[in-house]
């Protein structure tokens, strides 16, 4: 698989809104407290769109997609 982007979450910024794992459940999941965990760090095209949804809808700006 050719990775298109690397998904990063800043645990210091995440406060558990949970938008990412609701909108992009294939890329993100919740930890015990409801904070974000990245399941797929390196995402190819299809998942990159999902990941971007999570990134763009995080009210804390805690998610970054690195190319």
């Amino acid at each position: 698989m050719i990775a298109l982007a690397r998904v990063r979450v800043d645990a210091e910024k995440c406060v558990g809104h949970g938008r990412c794992y609701v909108l992009a459940p294939e890329v993100f999941e919740e930890d015990e407290r409801g904070h974000c965990i990245v399941i797929e760090e390196d995402v190819s095209e299809a998942l990159a769109d999902e990941a971007r949804k999570g990134e763009r809808n995080c009210p804390e700006g805690a998610i970054r997609l690195e190319r």
């Binding site: 558990g16 949970g18 794992y21 609701v22 919740e30 015990e32 407290r33 409801g34 904070h35």
Partner: peptide
């Protein structure tokens, strides 16, 4: 919050 959050998680 560490104590309460798990009891209010989506799951």
């Amino acid at each position: 919050r560490k104590l309460l959050d798990p009891h209010f998680s989506r799951r």
